[in-house]
């Protein structure tokens, strides 16, 4: 079974720093890593390959230095890697990104299954998977937390939903987006990692012409949405002491939580 895994290089947002004066994000020196969910996608793909045979192919869109996540993917057991890299791809929204990726996948052609991480930590949009599936006109299963069985006709997966899960059978080819519950990703193996750095390693770099897209269809120009502005929200703490009887202070606190912009506000 041939499996394509979509991977993305992202800034490591877990140790993000803000400029104490301006409150702006400090991008300098931000370490780049493979998007965490994508590690689980790769692990799933390599596990399936170990059972069924075939190839795992990692695909990424990004600047030249994004080759590092492909090297890492090969260290984890991918057999081939493809970097879609072109100045023209920059500034893409999810529409243009999913289009570019799907054209790259069409050029690879020979696949049964596509696996990608549920979402990327720098954007959290969770859109690329379903959009790529629609460009390619194949079935999709999102929030996958278990792969029960897979053969050339059908895959059975579990999907994590808000209040439980769903077991879904999908006709192949299919695109899965997976969440971290699915598995524990392996670390790269030194032999595979070192081989992937060698000149003869099977990593291909494709530009816009290679995958047959026009520059007006991709990147910022091909995007439907555009960033108008970015700003840093004001997180200054008020240091307010709530006063009154126990009953009063607690109800005051709950009121404030209800009005806060947190995801639990509506449940209170």
């Amino acid at each position: 079974m041939n499996i394509i895994v979509l991977v993305k290089q992202v800034p490591n947002t877990t140790n993000i720093k803000l400029d104490p004066k301006t409150g702006n994000l400090i991008r300098e020196g931000l370490e780049s890593i493979m998007n965490p969910d994508d590690l689980h996608a790769l692990e799933a793909a390599v596990k399936i390959k170990d059972k069924t045979g075939g190839k795992v192919m990692a695909v990424s869109m990004g600047p030249p230095q994004a080759v590092d996540v492909l090297t890492q993917a090969m260290g984890m057991g991918a057999d081939k890697a493809f970097l879609l890299s072109d100045r023209a791809f920059s500034g893409a929204d999810t529409w243009a990104t999913s289009y570019t990726l799907s054209k790259g996948i069409e050029k690879i052609k020979d696949y049964d299954l596509i696996i990608c991480g549920h979402q990327a930590i720098d954007g959290d949009t969770a859109q690329i998977g379903p959009q790529v599936a629609d460009w390619l006109d194949i079935a999709q299963a999102t929030y996958v937390n278990d792969i029960e069985s897979v053969d050339e006709n059908e895959i059975v997966v579990k999907r994590r939903l808000e209040h439980g899960f769903e077991r879904l059978a999908c006709k192949m080819p299919v695109l899965l987006t997976v969440i971290s519950e699915l598995n524990e990703p392996r670390y790269p193996h030194m032999e595979q990692l070192i081989s992937a750095c060698e000149q003869k390693a099977p990593i291909k770099v494709w530009n816009a012409a290679d995958i047959g897209v026009k520059t007006i269809e991709v990147g910022l120009e091909g995007s439907n949405t555009h960033v108008i502005k970015t700003f840093t929200p004001n997180f200054k703490r008020q240091n307010e002491l709530l006063e009154g009887s126990n009953k009063e202070v607690v109800s005051d606190l709950i009121d404030r939580l209800k009005k806060s912009d947190t995801t639990i506000a509506y449940r209170l």
């Binding site: 690329i128 379903p130 959009q131 629609d134 929030y143």
Partner: peptide, 24 residues
């Protein structure tokens, strides 16, 4: 929701438009 985040991107691609996720 889990349903909306599964459906919305696919719809947006299908009808040829952009989509902004998780707006506040």
């Amino acid at each position: 929701t889990a349903l909306g985040r599964d459906l919305a991107p696919r719809v947006s691609r299908r009808v040829g438009t952009g989509l902004t996720a998780d707006c506040t």
